[in-house]
């Protein structure tokens, strides 16, 4: 699966000090390394092992993933916003690929 497509939902605007909810989803098989193919050979593990969320460069939330996280890993979490800026989302793949997405928010 070469094209892991991230999808992120962040409110477009908020009031200063609000706690907003962020939802993220990325299409990825999360091959656990436990499965076997038709010939009985184990299929090598390939998962997203880390997810991070930053706001204007400061860490907000991150997660270490194990193979027990479902395919197309989904996260819902909170963030406190005091100023306008951009959220940066990063997913790290076992094979070294890095998937990123950015969303900006207006805070009044």
């Amino acid at each position: 699966m070469a094209s892991a497509k991230p999808r992120v939902k962040v409110p477009k605007k908020a009031s200063a000090g609000d706690i907003i909810t962020i939802k993220t989803l990325i299409s990825h098989k999360m091959e656990s390394g436990q499965r076997k193919d038709k010939e009985g050979n184990p299929i090598p593990r390939r998962i997203i092992n880390k997810f991070t969320c930053e706001f204007n460069g400061a860490p907000v939330f991150s997660c270490d993933l194990e193979p027990a996280v479902s395919a197309n890993p989904y996260f819902e979490f909170s963030a406190k916003v005091n100023e306008s800026g951009a959220f940066k989302f990063t997913w790290l793949d076992d094979d070294g690929s890095v998937y990123t997405d950015e969303k900006s928010i207006k805070v009044s």
Partner: peptide, 17 residues
């Protein structure tokens, strides 16, 4: 999985599958 929170998280809650 391990979720890491910071003061910027605002609330320590997380949902996944």
């Amino acid at each position: 999985a391990t979720f890491h929170f910071t003061a910027m998280s605002g609330a320590a809650d997380a949902t996944t599958r």
